[in-house]
């Protein structure tokens, strides 16, 4: 089997909460003990609600943030403890595309200069080669060449996101971290960008880490998916397995909560979570315990370790036990 391009080993990130007066301060664990492997040429999708730690995870992969513990490996090389200069040298290998294309492009620069900048910074060829590459990039992401002299504000949201993708590709990276790349776009434009990303992946053999909250889009993009809740991965595996036969109550609840125009799904039996995100008591307790309709005494000390169940890894296989078909939950 191929080696993973990117591997996270027991990665955690703890923040100190400001404004606390006690001597040691209060801490918040944004990401807890996350391990995952991303295979070459594949898309690894990460889903979860706000505050689940998915963006912190992306920032750690990009070395914009150091893990409090754990290791991150890229191409068999540990990257989380690299010095500033070593990280900079490695930067062309992995790039990121953000949700807000408006604020991630310099408004005072023409698009051609925005695309040129990374190449000049990393000295990849002379001025002529760079200019040729700018044209090739514009073409690659489907932007007309005559638009390269324009400024970001003259572009629509979808076009700006194309510029961001072109910039991320300018140094020929092999890993692209996509943090909600279509969330800010109109529905009709989302499909254009998703298809563009898939075409580029196929053509260039790119590896993606795709973070999103639109479940349909994540499924459409990803080979593997990890579902996160309160900083932990609760279930991970092949995307079809996870989405068509979820094992964890949270995965099921997330899928069931997604509004759908599909008439056949509208009256499906759904798992509902009560209340809002809250911390469960006890270190070993399942994080979903306070909201889960299937909780039992056992969940107080078992619900953290991922175990193999029916082709995926999950912290809880309650939905499979209850049998998805005769289905748990109520109709809406």
């Amino acid at each position: 089997m191929a080696e993973p391009v990117l591997e996270l080993r027991n990665v955690s990130r703890r923040y100190r909460v400001s404004g606390e007066k006690s001597l040691f301060g209060k801490t918040f664990d944004a990401v807890r003990d996350v391990s995952l492997k991303v295979m070459p040429g594949e898309t690894f999708g990460i889903v979860g609600e706000s505050g689940c730690g998915k963006t912190t995870l992306a920032r750690m992969i990009m070395c914009l943030e150091r893990p409090s513990s754990g290791e991150i490996w890229l191409h068999g090389r540990r990257i989380d403890n690299l010095s500033e200069s070593a990280r900079r040298a490695l930067r062309p290998r992995f790039q990121m595309v953000f949700q807000d294309s408006g604020s991630s492009l310099n408004p005072r620069k023409r698009v051609e200069d925005i695309l040129r900048e990374p190449m000049l910074y990393h000295h990849v060829g002379d001025a002529k080669q760079v200019d040729g590459r700018v044209d090739a990039l514009m073409d690659m992401v489907g932007l007309p060449l005559e638009m390269k002299k324009r400024y970001p504000h003259e572009f629509s949201g979808g076009q700006r996101q194309r510029v961001c993708i072109a910039r991320a590709l300018s140094l020929n990276p092999d890993v692209l971290v996509l943090d909600e790349p279509v969330s800010a776009l109109d529905v009709s434009v989302q499909a254009q960008i998703l298809n563009l990303l898939r075409d580029l992946q196929e053509k260039m053999g790119l590896t993606y880490v795709f973070i999103g909250h639109g479940l349909g889009a994540v499924h459409y993009m990803s080979h593997q998916i990890a579902v996160m809740y309160m900083g932990r991965v609760v279930e991970t595996g092949p995307s079809d397995t996870l989405f068509n036969r979820p094992a964890h109550p949270y995965t099921k609840a997330l899928l069931d909560a997604a509004p759908t125009a599909d008439d056949t799904l509208r009256n499906r039996k759904r798992v509902e979570l009560s209340g809002e995100i809250e911390e469960a008591d006890g270190e070993a307790s399942c994080p979903l315990l306070p909201r889960c309709p299937f909780s039992r005494e056992n969940c107080r000390h078992d619900g953290l370790t991922l175990k193999e169940a029916d082709g995926r890894m999950t912290a809880c296989a309650r939905i499979l036990e209850l049998d998805g078909k005769q289905a748990c939950g109520s109709t809406f």
């Binding site: 989302q190 499909a191 479940l215 499924h219 459409y220 080979h223």
Partner: peptide, 13 residues
């Protein structure tokens, strides 16, 4: 143009 929950990668959007 909206990917469905159970549409896999097989079908192009």
């Amino acid at each position: 143009a909206v990917p469905g929950l159970h549409d896999s990668r097989e079908k192009r959007l």
